[in-house]
Amino acid sequence: MSDDAPLTTSKNAQVRQDSAEDLIGIESADLIGRTVTINRPRAELYAYWRDFEQLPTFMDNVERIDCLSKTRSHWVVKAPAGAMVEWDAEIIEESDGELIAWRSAEGADVPNSGRVEFRDAGDRGTIVTATIAYDPPAGTLGKLIAKLFQREPAIQARRDLRRFKQLMETGEIATAAWTMAQLDEEKA
């Protein structure tokens, strides 16, 4: 690399794949990354994220996360046509107030890995960078799931981070609905 741009912005797909492979150890994986600046203290953002059971509040595709231990969690994620995919994830790296990285356990339908970093941004708050590596699966169920994950995972990640920002900065997630019924429909 001859510049300082993040690997996730590389024009070269091989560079992104190699970097994803480093993260989850699978050759065909893809890598996406998104950064957002949130006008709240680093420790507060870290603490919210570290409590995985809270993540579905802003991650639209994630139905539920159960914490099995301090480092192991069980994820239930919405797939198209009302189906659900599930896997266990293990925290593989963690540094208080700075970094959380996790990876799906052996045998997951969609091997994936996530990493979120928190850096001070002076009077602008905290820079939050989420990097996700995932391996689109094969097979029939696999294809269904792939549809979910390949439906612009980058866009999904960007939307989730925007919701995280809204929740942290304003205490709520913006909606244009005007009745409870519309809001429920939006969330379904």
């Binding site: 006008n39 989730d160 304003t170 997630i173 909606t175």
Partner: peptide, 27 residues
């Protein structure tokens, strides 16, 4: 529609608010 708590609202640039627009619509 501005949140009053983001960086831009802090600078009184309310029409540039980061949070007034729902996440999906920001695309």
């Amino acid at each position: 529609i501005a949140c009053g708590s983001c960086y831009h609202c802090g600078k009184h640039q309310y029409s540039a608010c980061d949070n007034g627009n729902p996440a999906d619509n920001q695309d």
